[in-house]
Design a protein around this nucleic acid. Structure first.
Length: 275
DNA sequence: CTCCAGGCGGATC
DNA sequence: GATCCGCATGGA
């Protein structure tokens, strides 16, 4: 059962909701692991997830925002039932059960996944942490993700200094374009392929990064981000390899309307070598 | 030392 | 259109 009170969302433990899977699966880079739970940061907002005996508490001023953020309106049992008979799903879901696809802040998600390319999760988290600590807006006891205009106001050297490497130019340029009027909210109403085409106009956003942004920032499920781990999935499945676009089309067709969820179950399980 | 990590942009054909 | 290559950085 999921209930919203003032300042708290309660999720009973018979629900498909596992903070460990949600935060550890690689979809999000900005959270803290604390005693008895996690702290989630999204855009300018914050929530604390506390593990109680019979239920989880999501403690926040912004209950409506985080109800949506944690995708609490979606029936994950239905998704699991739909995917259960498909390749690698038994093992992957067994490992990733309770995983939910977050509905993340769009700008933060775009910058985060530009930084993710040809990079590893630990380093990505470090870069984002230095970005936020460096120029994020300060609140009572935390900092928010920097706004597009704030990011655009920095020198590109700042992004090199926080460790972005050759991606420094990409995030700088993207921040300038978005703060200059590129309407990332407007993409919400577009179909997936049109939105993808628009996102790929941003420097540093290629096909894979666009798919991640569409999945985690725009809640599009008819995508299949193909990264180094999903290539292993394909290889194991087909005992073969092909170009990235070919893999994506094949896997999209195979996993169907819930491809986005399937991809994340697979990514998490394969990355942690549970399949 | 080399290889790898939630790949991409640009050059070349 | 497809292929190839260089790329910052740090850990294994």
């Amino acid at each position: 059962m999921i209930t919203i009170n003032k300042g708290e969302i309660r999720v009973t433990k018979d629900e498909l909701f596992d903070p460990q899977a949600i935060f550890d699966c690689g979809q999000v880079f900005r959270f803290d692991i604390v005693d008895k739970g996690y702290i989630a940061y999204s855009g300018q907002k914050k929530a604390r997830v506390v593990d109680n005996r019979d239920y989880y508490s999501i403690i926040t001023k912004d209950t409506d925002y985080f109800y949506n953020y944690f995708d609490l309106g979606t029936d994950y049992q239905k998704i699991i039932d739909n995917l259960a008979a498909k390749p690698f799903m038994q093992e992957s879901i067994a490992y990733a059960k309770g995983l939910r696809i977050l509905r993340q802040d769009k700008f933060e998600n775009i910058i985060s996944f530009i930084l993710s390319s040809n990079n590893n999760i630990k380093r990505i988290q470090g870069i984002i942490n230095r970005l936020v600590q460096g120029i994020g807006e300060e609140y009572e006891d935390y900092k928010g993700f920097p706004t597009p205009s704030r990011m655009a106001s920095m020198d590109v050297d700042f992004y090199r200094q926080i460790g972005a490497g050759y991606r420094a130019d990409y995030v700088y340029n993207t921040a300038k374009v978005i703060s200059g009027g590129f309407d990332i909210e407007g993409l919400t109403v577009m179909d997936t392929q049109s939105a993808k085409k628009e996102l790929m106009k941003l420097k540093g956003v290629g096909s894979k990064v666009a798919d991640c942004i569409l999945l985690f920032g725009y809640s599009k499920k008819d995508v299949f981000p193909v990264d180094t781990w999903i290539k292993k999935v394909y290889q194991k499945l087909c005992n073969d390899t092909c170009d990235t676009a070919g893999m994506r089309e094949y896997l999209l067709d195979l996993y169907g309307e819930y491809s986005g969820y399937a991809q994340q179950y697979l990514f998490y399980a394969f990355r942690d070598k549970k399949v």
